[in-house]
Amino acid sequence: MDKRTKISIIGAGFVGSTTAYALMLEGLASEIVIVDINKDKAMAEAMDLSHGAAFVKPVNIISGEYEDTKDSDIVIITAGIGPKPGETRLDIINKNISIFKTMIPQIVKYNPNAILLVVSNPVDVLTYITYKLSGFPSSRVIGSGTVLDTSRFRYMLSEHFNIDARNIHTYIIGEHGDSEIAAWSLTNIAGMSADEYCLKMCANCDSSFKNSIPEAVKNAAYEILNRKGYTNYAVALAVRRIVEAILRDENAILTISSLFTGQYGIDDVYLGIPTVVGKAGAKNILEVSLNEEESSKLHESAGILKEYILKSDI
């Protein structure tokens, strides 16, 4: 990893500031720049983080303007208007598109070689918008996709089966939102499918969890929003994981939001899908073997997002 790695975060809200904290703890950057329209908020976050300098690896954390992000390795975009209680991620699309039309040209002006990582919601649509506005190759414009949803899925399965979440291998694919799909055909625990593990290891287990858990994953963000008004910790950890995979050139397989160019018979839309992630960004989408129902739902998810893109004020 480059010892002089620079990461900029656009947006000093709950997600942006917690992301800066997660990156700082992991020691992934030598410089972190925080930019926000609320300059006092950005400055306060940078100051607060900097005061922990004695407890972490050396890192220079500043607040600034777009020009201060110049030559960043990665620009993380968390700015925008989040969903309020009762709103879906897609309800807020046009509010955020107007923000992105102003923001993306400024980011590109100072960071022509950066990887752009979009976290703002609705993340799949806004990643597509960023791709179109930036003119960057799709490999360098990615979204956080369903990396968080996949972690939620693994956690809930770990609670159900009472085993370590790290030993459950599975994915949530498609939209980061209401049309997301639990890929049961790809789920395995010690090489066993969820059904096989259930049969062999859980005396009182029935198949109802295959409906209840994906529904709980899908509604998790809404439940948190209704209770505290925002989400921040888990999404920041998901972003940290993506950044780590890029900076360490891991060739990690993560369900980031990637541009489909014919994979699965889907074209010109960003969706969360298992993707090889390394220093060049999104290296390639993996065309894993989905069952017929999952494949159909993935197409439906793509159709929903395309419809919103067509209706949006791009």
Rank of each mutant, 00 (worst) to 15 (best):
E45Q: 13
N60D: 09
A29K: 01
T19V: 13
V15I: 15
A42K: 00
G13H: 11
G11L: 02
I61T: 05
E67W: 07
A53V: 08
K70H: 01
P85S: 04
G64I: 02
A53F: 13
S72N: 07
M43K: 12
S72Q: 08
V108F: 02
P83R: 04
I62V: 10
N60L: 00
D71G: 10
I61S: 12
G11E: 02
I62M: 01
F100Y: 10
S17C: 12
V75P: 01
I76V: 03
V35L: 00
A22P: 02
K41M: 06
M47Q: 10
N96I: 00
E65Y: 13
G16D: 14
K57T: 08
G52N: 14
F55E: 10
D36I: 01
I97K: 14
I34D: 09
V15F: 07
K95W: 06
D68H: 09
I10H: 00
G86W: 05
N60W: 09
S8H: 06
D48C: 11
E87Y: 15
S50P: 02
I81F: 15
L23C: 09
G13W: 03
A20C: 07
I10K: 09
V33A: 07
E45L: 08
G82Y: 07
G16W: 12
T88R: 15
F100K: 04
G52E: 13
A20R: 03
I32K: 01
F100N: 11
S98I: 01
G13P: 06
S30Y: 03
S50V: 03
D48G: 09
K39D: 11
Y21D: 12
G16N: 09
A54M: 06
I32F: 09
K101A: 07
M24I: 04
Y66M: 11
D40Y: 03
I107G: 10
V108I: 15
L90M: 10
M24K: 14
V75W: 05
Y66D: 07
T69C: 12
I77M: 05
F100W: 02
A22H: 02
S8Y: 03
V75K: 08
I92A: 15
D71K: 06
I93D: 00
D71L: 10
L28S: 05
S50C: 00
Y66I: 00
G52K: 13
V35E: 08
V59S: 02
T78Y: 06
Y66G: 08
S30K: 09
I9W: 07
Q106R: 04
A22C: 04
P85I: 15
E31I: 10
S72L: 04
L49K: 05
V56H: 11
G52C: 11
A54I: 08
K101Y: 08
N38H: 12
T88Q: 15
Y66N: 04
D68Q: 00
K70E: 08
Q106E: 08
G11T: 08
P83A: 08
A46Y: 06
S30C: 02
A42M: 06
N96T: 13
G86M: 03
K70L: 11
V35C: 04
I10R: 15
I99K: 15
